[in-house]
Structures are given as structure tokens and as C-alpha cells.
Amino acid sequence: MSTPLVIGSVAYDPKVVTIWEGFRGFLRERGIETDFVLYSNYERQVEDLLANRIDLAWNSPLAWVRADRLARARGLTVVPLFMRDSDRELRSAVVTRAGSGAETLSDLRGKRVGVGAVDSPQSTLIPLSYLRSQGLVPGEDFEVVRFDVGVGLHGDHVGGERDAVIALREGSVDAACVLDANLIVFSQEGTVPSGYLSVLGQTEPFDHCMMTTAPGADPEAVATLNDAFLAMSYADPTVRRLLDLEGLKQWLPGRTENYAALERAVDETGFYDAEGNITADDYRP
């Protein structure tokens, strides 16, 4: 029996155990031995990936950016292997209360904008960079009000984003940054009624999580695993249960072009430096 490939994943929710137990069983039936290791935050997972303590990491987009930077700085390579179909072309919106008087982004000048956790790509890093690109410098042209929930989970925890919208509802901020999907979620769960939010602006599409290989992972074993993931069919009821839990219909090949906006945001805020070191001073995963 070959050495099992070890997959790292961040335990942002208890269902993560069910998901990876399920995939492990699925792969074992196909003769592929794996194991998984759970992390409480993405930073340690990325560091372990670079140290080859795990063979693969189920990375957030921000974790991919860091892994890639750390690898390049050391003359190594991490490979973007595969991703969820549901992680392609996400967009975030800058929203305000409908009828608040704000019509365009420039109306946010001098106002307070609620964002999610410090390390959330979708509700902090990317939308703040977007606002900057629209001529509004965070902290200068408007005040950033951060809602730090689940720091270290890179925005996987929706709590900070929800708190930003609650703050908008309660009037302590004038706008909030939310992922497109959460516009529907926050309305369905009753955080705000339908039609309550008005969209002032939206980011370009960006991609989300990425299965990333360690520099030292066995390429042959990785290729076999990659094929097995890409072959998972939503028509298979056993797999469907796992895919539903993980929130996808199909695994797709990895791609990195849609991480450009996040790379830019990381540079602008100095979240990581070019070598992948954590440089954000108020970030405690």
C-alpha cells in the first residue's frame, strides 16, 4: 500500500469532518489512500503545506495567495489543483439602505462602511480594494468599521459579514460590503427584508477556494487523486450527499487568473508581503 496523501482542511464548521470522512471513504473504494488533518486557521495550514507536513491543502483564496508567495520566495512551486464549480466568478457588493439618499459610491465620502473580518477576501479585502479603485481610499475618504468574527478562517465564517449588515440596519454604519450570495441569504434568514438593501457598486468577478499541492507532494499520486475528484459525478447518490454538503455540483480544474483582485488587495493593505510573511499588524488568527 502506498503512503496516504494527507489533505489539510480548516474546520470552520463541524460538517467539515463529515465531508472529509466521506471523501476519504470514496477515495479508498477507488484504491486511493488519503488522510486528513484539520486546522483551526488557514495560516498554520499554509505553513504546514510549505513544510510538506501535508500533501494538499484545501485553501481559501487568501491561503492560496500566501502559499504561492511563500513557495516563490523559496524557489518552490505549489500547484492549483481543482476547485468547486460554485467558487468561480463570485462578486461582492457595496450596499446601503434603500432610500438612504446615497445614490453612487462617491456618496460614501466621509461615511462609515462596515466590512467583515480582517482576513475576509469577499467582504473586506476585495471590496475595499474595489472602493479604492473607484477613487475612495479606505480610512481616508471613508471610515472602515470592521466586524471581526472567525478571524483566521479567511471569511469562511459568515458572522462578520452578517454583523456588518445588522449594523447597517441599525444605522451605526452607512454601507456594508457583502458577497453576492449573502444578499439572498441575509434576506432569507430575515436579517433584512427583501428590497431593504440597495447596491451602490459591485466588484469584478473573482474565484474562491483552491485545492493546493505541497511543493514536495508525489506528482503521480496527486495526479491520481486529481482524476478521482474531477470524476466525481453528481449523479452518484453517495457522492451527491458529500457534494451537497460541500456546496458544489462538480469539481473543476484549478485556475488562478481570477485571484488578481485579491493579490492587489493584499498588496494594498500589506496583509502579506511579497514573500508571504504575515505583515498585517492587527491580524491574530
Binding site: V95, L179, D180, A181, L197, S198
Partner: peptide, 9 residues
């Protein structure tokens, strides 16, 4: 409001 965003999601 926000139709294209919600539709994409």
C-alpha cells in the same frame, strides 16, 4: 435591485 448579483449567486 441587485438582480444580476443575486442571479449570479
Amino acid at each position: 435591485g441587485g438582480l444580476s448579483l443575486m442571479l449570479g449567486a
